[in-house]
Design a binder for these strands. Sequence first.
DNA 1: GACCCTCTTGACAGCGCTTTCAAAATGTGC
DNA 2: GCACATTTTGAAAGCGCTGTCAAGAGGGTC
Lengths: 342, 342
Amino acid sequence: MREAVTLNDVAREAGVSPSTVSRVINGTARVNARKREAVLKAIERLNYRPNLMAKGLAQGRSLTVGVVTQEISSPYYGEMLKGVEQALEQTPYHPIFASGHWRADQEEAALKVLVDRQVDALIVMDGSVPEERLLELSQQMPVVVVGREIAGLNCLSIDNFQGAHQAIRHLIELGHRRIAHIAGPKSHPDAVERLKGYKAALAEAGLPYDPSLVVEGDYLEPSGLLAVEALLARGALFTAIFAANDQMAYGASVALYRRGIRIPHDVSLVGFDDLPSSNYFSPPLTSVRQPGQEMGWEAARWVLAMLKGQSYTPRPLSTRLVVRESTGFLRSPGSRLMHQTS
Amino acid sequence: MREAVTLNDVAREAGVSPSTVSRVINGTARVNARKREAVLKAIERLNYRPNLMAKGLAQGRSLTVGVVTQEISSPYYGEMLKGVEQALEQTPYHPIFASGHWRADQEEAALKVLVDRQVDALIVMDGSVPEERLLELSQQMPVVVVGREIAGLNCLSIDNFQGAHQAIRHLIELGHRRIAHIAGPKSHPDAVERLKGYKAALAEAGLPYDPSLVVEGDYLEPSGLLAVEALLARGALFTAIFAANDQMAYGASVALYRRGIRIPHDVSLVGFDDLPSSNYFSPPLTSVRQPGQEMGWEAARWVLAMLKGQSYTPRPLSTRLVVRESTGFLRSPGSRLMHQTS
DNA sequence: GACCCTCTTGACAGCGCTTTCAAAATGTGC
DNA sequence: GCACATTTTGAAAGCGCTGTCAAGAGGGTC
């Protein structure tokens, strides 16, 4: 394992002081053109690469941005992380990720890891860290929260109510009257909002709210499958399903497939998030698009601005219903499913 | 932004020297029980957290492991990253990711970023960095390569040939004789191996290899869709498709769906990777399981061992065909598709 | 040629931690 | 109670870099 070449080596090689080398590298002060040349040559010759840890220590910053997600492998967070990565690509900053695994204690542990690693700023995605904790952290460094709204903090989130509302409107316009909902966990504010949007859209259309058509899932595929089975088991009558996220919609579609219930022929299905894979689902899934990548990007731009002491107004993030092939007109008042289960 | 409390503060508070505090924290030498107590109390009282950057600089290591992937948001890499994260969770090390975006130059840039950040070890997933470059890096720090076999390096990969072979055997056993293949990019060694496995299995069964049944994709969904369209356009006759990865299989299924070709009724479909979502695809996708998470885990354990100067023998990683509902017996010699396109 | 200004440069003191090294404290045997 | 071996401890140097500060080098003015 070779010895690393340091700034001192460069200084010696170029016949100048370390300070001068530092100045050339960072452009922090004018340096005589000849010396600058000498330094650059020496850097080239020795193939010098600055030690970012030393630099960080000296400057009191690490040039890293901490990102807390729930699960790094989740397609939903994947999109956001990609956005963050992209926004940071051309800057001196680099993201460093830690996952909360959907558990408050692990999330706190993730925060600790990042803080200990001296991240210069923090992006927190969803989760259930107490608000006070985040407020406390925001005293120490720039913090941007994605997917939650916390007074006194810079937050970035979409209108979940509106998104759900759009989805239900779409189904109603297609003629559906009995629309089941696979909700997200009650502990997630976004899930609650989506449920509200569902109810509101029904109410506006003069449709009754039937609690037996709502099942709570946990945002993962298996729970979508289970939800549909529960619905079917209790003999619920429905011609469409609105799942609070795409992953649960995937699960739901399998349950329907198993029963020989065809999408959208017998039942229409709408998801939320519009994951990249939803476009390639079969049938391609109608879903409420949530601009994950853009959210990550905006969050990163925001903390960058805060780090520079600038203000930043994130572009408004809006949801958009992407209609694909998993939704269709209600076939007939007494569709197959209605008969089958009644 | 509050001033951070340092080891010196703790020393003063506890009435001992900084060295002693360091010793208590790291357990690098015995310390009188009373002093240790005093130090621990002081740490508690001041809520001290060591500065990992300073520690890193002093020790000449960063306690980070660099991981180069192609795309952090890809479900395939997501699984591996999760494995890495998991393996590192209970250690002092933390992963730091950088993406190559499927481009050699960006991959090199990613490597540079990680090396500049003084990662203590490197995990390289697939990609096309020149072998010499990796060998050079391995002189400087522990390196484990996943998904490539490079002489002189610690590599971790599955038997792609065998996996593809299994998939084709399965289709043949179901009666299929004309099996199309959506290959991965020729530049990827694993794609090449999978193609070889496909050919070998055909040959063993005494079936001819028909180049017109093979289309090259790029491992992403759209290319799967395009591939099937190309196949159909050229009037290829087939009753089954083996896609070199699940994402292309997803794309393929959409193309088939659009043409009204049913899976597995008209055409059987097999993927490779067995992404988590494949289990919830409709119909649930038959796929060659590649233990992504385990691969990440093993790679991480391996570099950890190397960092400790220990040797490590990774558990053998094997592929396994997971048969789900996207494959079925050949309906009849003259299946729908055969007629339709002939 | 003395004086003042501006620009460039190097010495040096950190950043917060670790790690020798030698001094201080403790313990042992007689 | 002494000489000696053994721990335990603190002082100090250093990891590789930055940034202040004051000295040095030029240049202009009268």
